[in-house]
Write a protein that binds this DNA or RNA. Structure first.
Length: 687
DNA sequence: TTACACACCCACACACCAT
DNA sequence: TATGGTGTGTGGGTGTGTA
């Protein structure tokens, strides 16, 4: 399949553009209907990347909109007419009708891009309207004209309208009966969220359809070994193309485990391990291009807003150390020691001592210098040997070294020094490297020096199979089951669900603490809430009165491990803070902690792990969230310390120790209400 | 019989934290 | 502040058993 084909047929959903896990957007249900018509029109404009136009929120899909607009303009200019012009289709989105929601989206794109229309709701089978609708489904439980998805693909591939009668699906009364029997009461007729091509009210493609009645349908059936629990399902061409498309849009993550684990949420029949293996062994050969990304892995677009294909793979996340890098580090370390001991420049041999040196420098020098060496009798740098010396090496050294050698981070260089160079020996590696070079042999980087004792009860790194998942999410199973029973789970992939404790405490706290109900077993009295609110209003002038426009954007402390590309696409700190304030004003139900996390993730670009950690330090009080960021950014501290409402581990320790004087100080800063509340959190081990 | 789906491994790059 | 301990998950695989 060519690159162009793959773009048309099998494309990643928005979730995988820039950051795979980030763009699940849920339209408020009450807006769903009003957006259908507009969305349907926009779907026709889907670009050649197959980007879904599920959300019409311009703030979220601006780039996609641009792409769609480009496509529309080009199509109009070319006066293209599609093979499906004048035809109206209904896509069966039942979970068992197609292998995955992705395939439904592909079909949708094919129809729309070729001039067809899609209706989101089936009319009564006896109505006049129904006679013009063509249902796309592997089975016919509607008594309407039904074709298989092959009809759509075959027409597009041959670029002509084929004879439909070869693809018609006869009415299947058994399946109709089965569907009725298995449908929940709310599915008396297809709802907008289930059948709509715009998928309102659901995070498109974030929830692969379950395969629970696969035995009756022409979809792959997973066979499970009784002995091992391992099941195997072949990869379909659509799955392969989907995987390739995601990798093309996330090229920096192509070797990670997490990318493929995330993909597995969208490819229901396979684990992250197997998808990763599939890519490495079979699909990597077909990765004939990727989309260009910047240094952070964010997709780059051309002046028309289109993604840019490239055959040049970006560097992956972690870079291996090379022999040259090891040698340069060894030489730099040796030079630093030489300077410290002899106060001589290792290159020129000139003294580094000056009569004008400040006292601090003189004091430091006297600590570092070798007292046994007489001035003037120092060895030249070439004769100097580091020996068993291990330090001290100032952090400033690694900072400076990283500036000159930006291929690795400061932490990585320091770790390389600690774990490898010191273990191997500075002198030994320099000698080895220079000998190899002198003999025209290629030196190797240092390796196999970091054996750590195996820790029991810890999962093996890089294992994204079923067992690892089970272990990782075992703790959240109860909460998950509860939510599922309430029909609230499933919108977010299992991996995104919070652990039970986090769920409990966040669920217990809403925007307005005084409105807290105690359904979650958390004794959070109105008195405490009121005390906190009183404190809060007094604190606002001091701790929230920071003009975000005085904070440069992005703030230096806002790193990519805390924030997603959406964050960095914002134009100012003001915009970010406004978004935060807007989100926390929403009326989240206590059970919607995941939704809150998701919204902060999607709309403000805050990684869920970071949100979770912040909410912990805020005891879940969302009102303090803008304060957290304002102070974090302006003080360049994370978490910002000595700020009311923001708890540090030190504060928690004070509470645990219970020292009266210390607690008293804490009460002054945090207020009695917050201290009482925090104690309860600590008592329940919710932090 | 064998290709391949899936589980599993492990060194180590990068990171954070306590002392 | 320097340093050591160690968590996390990448990068590059290998092992196992099923289709």
């Amino acid at each position: 399949m060519s690159a162009n084909d793959s773009e048309q047929f099998d494309t990643a959903p928005n979730e995988f553009v820039d950051a795979l896990e980030t763009n699940i957007h849920i339209d408020p249900p009450n807006q769903a209907q009003s957006k259908i018509d507009e969305s349907s029109r926009k779907e026709k404009n889907n670009n050649d990347l197959g980007v879904e136009m599920t959300s019409v929120d311009p703030a979220l899909t601006g780039e996609d909109m641009n792409e769609a607009h480009t496509k529309e303009t080009a199509a109009e200019q070319n006066g293209e007419k599609g093979i499906f012009n004048g035809m109206v289709f209904y896509l069966n989105r039942d979970s068992n009708a197609h292998d995955s929601i992705i395939i439904v989206e592909q079909l949708k794109n094919l129809i729309l891009l070729n001039g067809g229309d899609i209706v989101n709701k089936l009319p009564n089978k006896d109505s006049a309207e129904a006679k013009h609708i063509i249902v796309v489904s592997p089975y016919n439980n509607t008594e309407l004209k039904t074709v298989t998805s092959t009809f759509i693909r075959a027409c597009v591939q041959s670029n002509k309208l084929l004879d439909m009668k070869n693809y018609l699906v006869p009415y299947d009364s058994f399946n109709a009966l089965l569907d009725d029997a298995m449908s929940p009461p709310s599915r008396q007729e297809p709802t907008i969220s289930e059948s709509s091509s715009v998928n309102e009210g659901q995070p498109t493609a974030s929830k692969p359809p379950p395969q629970n009645i696969a035995n009756k349908r022409d979809i792959p059936t997973k066979k499970v070994s009784a002995n091992t629990g391992v099941s195997k399902t072949s990869f379909t061409e659509e799955e392969d193309e989907f995987i390739l498309d995601v990798v093309r849009k996330n090229p920096m993550r192509r070797t990670t485990h997490t990318l493929f684990d995330e993909i597995s949420h969208y490819v229901p029949n396979h684990t992250g391990n197997s998808i990763r293996h599939r890519f490495r062994v079979h699909l990597s050969k077909r990765l004939d291009f990727v989309y260009q990304v910047d240094q952070y892995g964010k997709l780059v677009r051309d002046e028309n807003g289109n993604l840019i294909k490239t055959k040049v793979l970006p560097p992956s996340i972690k870079k291996k150390f090379t022999a040259d890098e090891d040698y340069e580090l060894a030489i730099a370390i040796k030079q630093q020691f030489y300077k410290d001991i002899y106060q001589l420049d290792p290159v020129t041999g000139q003294s580094l001592i000056s009569d004008n040196d400040p006292p601090a420098r003189v004091a430091k020098r006297q600590m570092m210098m070798d007292p046994n060496v007489q001035r003037g009798s120092e060895p030249p740098f070439s004769k100097y040997r580091v020996g068993t010396r291990r330090g001290p090496i100032a952090r400033e050294f690694f900072k400076q070294f990283t500036e000159n050698h930006p291929t690795h981070t400061e932490s990585a260089w320091r770790d390389r020094f600690r774990k490898f160079l010191l273990e191997y020996g500075v002198d030994k590696y320099i000698e080895y490297y220079e000998t190899q070079k002198a003999n025209n042999d290629e030196p190797e980087a240092m390796k196999n020096l970091t054996i750590r004792t195996k820790r029991d009860n810890f999962p093996t790194p890089g294992n994204y199979g079923n067992a690892a998942k089970r272990q990782k999410y075992e703790v959240s199973s109860n909460v998950e089951n509860t939510l599922k029973s309430k029909g609230q789970a499933g919108d977010i992939p299992d991996a995104e669900l919070l652990d039970e404790d986090t769920m409990k405490f966040i669920s217990s706290l809403k925007n307005d603490l005084s409105k807290i109900d105690n359904n979650f077993g958390f004794d959070y009295t109105n008195e405490i809430a009121e005390a906190i609110r009183n404190d809060f209003s007094e604190e606002e002038a001091i701790y929230d009165n920071i003009d975000p426009n005085t904070i440069p954007f992005p703030p230096p402390i806002a790193t990519i491990d805390l924030f997603l590309p959406q964050f960095f696409r914002m134009s100012s700190t003001q915009e970010f803070i406004e978004k935060i304030r807007e989100i926390i004003q929403r009326d989240y139900e206590p059970s919607q902690a995941e939704l809150l996390m998701q919204d902060l993730n999607d709309e403000a670009g805050i990684r869920k792990t970071f949100t979770s950690s912040i909410l912990g330090s805020l005891s879940g009080d969302l009102m303090v969230l803008p304060r957290y960021f304002l102070n974090m950014f302006s003080k360049n501290q994370n978490p910002p310390i000595d700020i009311p409402g923001i708890w540090t581990s030190g504060d928690d320790d004070i509470l645990r120790r219970g020292d009266e004087a210390e607690v008293s100080k804490l009460v002054k800063r945090q207020g009695a209400g917050r201290v009482e509340m925090r104690k309860k959190f600590l008592e329940r081990n919710l932090i």
